[in-house]
Design a protein around this nucleic acid. Structure first.
Length: 268
DNA sequence: GTCCATGTTCTTTA
DNA sequence: CTAAAGAACATGGA
C-alpha cells in the first residue's frame, strides 16, 4: 500500500512515540526478511536509544545508538505500528520491540514483499535510489526521463528515476499533468515535464496532508487509516466519468500494473 | 476454482 | 554489451 505519502505519514506518527526511547527486548519471528540475514538484531539493537526517524523514498530509517540504523520497507501489505503489548498480536507479525510503558513497536507483513535492514555506520545513506520528488528540479527530472524510451507510466515507477512514487500516485500525477501514460518518457516536451513535476509535488503533498491513501491494509503508526483515497481522480475508477470532462475513464495494463487515465484529457 | 492487489528483484528477450 | 519486458515472490479478498 505504501507509497511516499503513506510512508511519510508512518514516519510522522512514529516520531513522537519512538524518538528518545530505549529499545528493550526484541523478537524477530523470521530472519529471511532481514538484510544482512546473518545479523544478530537483538544483540545489535537491545539497549540502544532511538535518535531520529526519517524517510528515504519508500523506506523508513530508524537511527539508533551512535551510528547505526534499522530500515523498514512496508512492501505491499506492511504495517509498522506502536501498540500496547496487551493488544492481540495479529498473524504475520514478524518483529516486535518492547518499549517503555508496556508499548511495543510491531512490524506485520502478510505478503512479505517488505523487509528489514540493519546498517552499522553510514550504509543507510548509500541506498541506490533516485532523487526525492518533493524538491526535485525539472531539469533533473527531464534529464532522467530523456534517458529512457519506456512509457512514462513505467518510468515513474522506477525508483532510480524518482524515489517514492508508486502505482496510485503515478496515475494521479499523469492525470493532473494531462499526459497520456503510454507517452514515451524521452518524447515528453519541456512543458510536459514541467507540468508533470508540478503535478507529482502537488498530489504527493495533498496526499500527505490527508494522511495517505488506504485501499485495504495501510494504517499509520497509530493504527489510523488515511483519507486521500476519497480524493483519487483516476486510480481504480475505470468506467467512471472523468471529473474534468465526464468521459469514461479507462484502465489498461502497463509494465504489468493497472493504469487508469482519461482518454480525452490525457491525449497523446 | 479465477482474478486482482499500494512493490521490488531476478531472469529472459530483443 | 545494454535496455526493456516478463516472471517471480506470498497472502488474502472479491
Amino acid at each position: 500500500m505504501p507509497e511516499l505519502p503513506e510512508v511519510e505519514t508512518v514516519v510522522r506518527t512514529l516520531r513522537p512515540r519512538l524518538v528518545g526511547q530505549i529499545l528493550q527486548k526484541i523478537n524477530l519471528g523470521r530472519s529471511d526478511i532481514l538484510t544482512p540475514s546473518d545479523c544478530d538484531l537483538p544483540a545489535s539493537l537491545e539497549g540502544q536509544r532511538v535518535r531520529s526517524i526519517e524517510r528515504r523514498g519508500k523506506k523508513i530509517i530508524i537511527r539508533v545508538g551512535i551510528d547505526a540504523a534499522l530500515g523498514v520497507h512496508l512492501g505491499m501489505t506492511g504495517r509498522l505500528t506502536v501498540e500496547s503489548e496487551d493488544a492481540p498480536k495479529l498473524p504475520h507479525t514478524h518483529l516486535s520491540i518492547d518499549l517503555a510503558k508496556q508499548q511495543q513497536l510491531r512490524f506485520r507483513d502478510p505478503r512479505r514483499f517488505g523487509g528489514l535492514w540493519y546498517w552499522k555506520g553510514k550504509g543507510w545513506a548509500e541506498e541506490n535510489m533516485g532523487p526525492e520528488p518533493l524538491g526535485l528540479r525539472t531539469t533533473t527530472l527531464a534529464k532522467a526521463l530523456g534517458r529512457t524510451r519506456r512509457v512514462i507510466k513505467t518510468a515513474l515507477l522506477d525508483q532510480s528515476i524518482v524515489a517514492g512514487v508508486g502505482n496510485i500516485y503515478a496515475d494521479e500525477a499523469l492525470f493532473r499533468a494531462r499526459i497520456h501514460p503510454e507517452t514515451p518518457a524521452n518524447e515528453l516536451s519541456t512543458s510536459q515535464v514541467t507540468a508533470l513535476n508540478k503535478a507529482i509535488k502537488q498530489v504527493l503533498t495533498r496526499a500527505i496532508n490527508h494522511r495517505g491513501s488506504t485501499l485495504r491494509d495501510y494504517v499509520d503508526a497509530e493504527g489510523s487509516a488515511g483519507g486521500f483515497q476519497k480524493l483519487h481522480q483516476v486510480y481504480a475508477r475505470a468506467n467512471e466519468p472523468c471529473v474534468r470532462c465526464k468521459t469514461a475513464l479507462q484502465r489498461l495494463v502497463l509494465g504489468g500494473r493497472s493504469t487508469h487515465f482519461c482518454p480525452k484529457c490525457q491525449h497523446r
